[in-house]
Amino acid sequence: MERAGVAAPTVPSFLRLRRAWETGVVSETVFGRLLGGFVLLVVVASALRLGHGPAAQTFLLVFTSIVIEALPFILVGALASAAIAVFLPERALDSLARLPLALQIPGAALSGVAFPVCECGSVPVARRLIARGVHPGAGIAFMLSSPVLNPIVLASTWVAYGGHARGAEMVAGRASLGLVAACAAGLAIGRRTRASDLLRARPGERAEAHDHEQGDRATAFSTHLVSDFLFMGKFIVLGAGLSALVQASVPESALSTLGGAPVMSSLALMLVAFVLSLCSEADAFIAASFTSFSSGAQLAFLVFGPIADLKLSVLYGATFRRWFLLRLLAVTVPLIVIGTLIFEAVT
């Protein structure tokens, strides 16, 4: 007779693998082997002259240059994020959180002017602000506006368009459409969202909180700083790799010839901005090169690039829930297209 009892539920093998991946501890022996294997791989690849072909060199150069340019800004973002986590008094954010949302969101978006880093640095800061109680809508608005509204970006836009009236037009268009897009995204995505519904939990966050609770601020600050930096850094590496892969395999002309009609040309340049993953401090020089496109389409490139691109998508995926990027695109793409049509009509 079969014995009645509670059989242990069978855990699917992929779940077991995933659990092992997330919680499995690396022993010193395994770590040594992994490190040795990594070094051996580099030595063998170097001996075989892998990476010396023209396509591989293009890929490696674009990849490493994006990482080299972005990492210090990630670190600055991590510094600000750690300072917010450890040194900002609870009551400072409480008073901000009590403001009506109609003031919080544009206020947060405008405060991006005072944070002169590119889009990579603003993500960890926004995440920390939301985790500390700033309304998700305000955090999103800050994150999206700071790479567009910061003075270095606006100055480089002015220079790229040769200054004078044309430069001023593009700067005004970029700043105003960027501000509107950031506020709209903050309002549409964050209005009815709780922080816990928006942010992805991060491994090791409990240990950081524990350090903080122990009252040792130096330890807590250094732990927050390094874990934010390393967490964001690996996703920048992945995003830079994707962008470099596309840049090395697809000619820019193939992407930019997608545009034709006004709306299509804006969408085409937004696609180019998404793929290239340029820093917002440099993208104006590229935007100005698309001379066969209207100024509205160029503005779409300038406003959309700092909001979403390949490297940011990977970063967003690691920071926010999966639906975030889709909703962000659903809100900002139509708004930017409409904004560029208005821009063309008035300039």
């Binding site: 501890v25 892998l50 060199q57 491994p203 390393l230 850094g233």
Partner: peptide, 22 residues
């Protein structure tokens, strides 16, 4: 150190390896 974190740390070494490679 978990496997997951170790993989992230190794990912951060890839750009350094790329520079050494070429």
């Amino acid at each position: 150190l978990t496997l997951r974190e170790a993989s992230g740390l190794f990912a951060l070494l890839v750009p350094l390896a790329a520079v050494l490679l070429v």
